[in-house]
């Protein structure tokens, strides 16, 4: 038993006429603009939350397209220049039998971004109306997306390291392609999209449907 915490009735701050600070946790009277303890901006529910989620998600989706079509790396070896895209780089790794690394890059650059678009889109569509889903499941989805999203940046860092190290004039050199910038932007935009999400909506909208 957890005796330090007592919340028998499970009242939300909003229902108690209070507004909670998402940064430090304390509650202030409803209508307070800035948190009394830490000074962060207070909003009982971020009404514009879903709009910002969509805006960032769309921006992330748009730059994800050139991130896949343009080359990520431009390798010059003995006057021959070859270009590889994100997926091309993974295929190359598989040819070199580096399966574990290929899996890491594939997951970070393809599975995580695409999964993130789908999950954020799903949550944003679902939460426009009261939903009949298990809030715990949705909450786990949101936490996972927020936690994993930043790991997509791996491939951008790989390109940076290769560019810095492989500089032997004509013998071998590596240059970053436009896709590296697009991909980095896509990761940043989708991270902002996940952060714009107000997770309290998940718990609010379920209650509207099941009056208990």
């Amino acid at each position: 038993m957890d005796r330090s915490v007592s919340s028998p009735s499970l009242t939300t701050a909003r229902r108690a006429g209070l507004v909670a600070c998402r940064s430090c946790g304390i509650v202030s009277p409803f209508g307070t603009r800035a948190c009394l303890r830490c000074g962060s901006r207070l909003e009982s529910r971020d009404e514009a939350s879903l709009q910002r989620v969509w805006a960032w998600l769309l921006a992330g989706l748009i730059v994800y397209i050139p991130a896949n079509t343009y080359p990520m790396l431009r390798t010059t070896q003995l006057f021959q220049t070859s270009e590889s895209t994100i997926v091309g780089g993974v295929v190359e790794l598989v040819h070199h039998h580096a399966y574990a690394i290929a899996a890491i890059v594939f997951i970070a650059s393809v599975v995580i971004p695409v999964g993130k678009f789908l999950v954020i889109g799903y949550l944003a569509v679902l939460l426009r109306r009261p939903h009949g889903q298990d809030p715990h499941k949705l909450h786990t989805l949101h936490t996972a997306v927020e936690f994993i999203g930043r790991w997509s940046m791996i491939d951008v860092f790989v390109v940076a390291i290769l560019t810095a190290l492989v500089q032997f004039d004509v013998v071998a050199s590596v240059k970053p392609g436009l896709a590296a910038a697009c991909f980095a932007l896509s990761v940043v935009f989708t991270m902002l999209s996940a952060q714009a999400f107000d997770p309290r909506l998940i718990w609010d909208r379920i209650k509207e449907e099941s009056p208990r």
């Binding site: 915490v5 919340s7 209070l18 909670a20 600070c21 946790g25 304390i26 509650v27 309290r200 718990w203």
Partner: peptide
């Protein structure tokens, strides 16, 4: 003044009393 023992969950807004 604020009460540092009364905090709300940042994810679901439920009030808790932390002694």
């Amino acid at each position: 003044i604020f009460d540092p023992t009364c905090i709300a969950c940042p994810n679901c807004d439920v009030l808790h009393k932390v002694a």
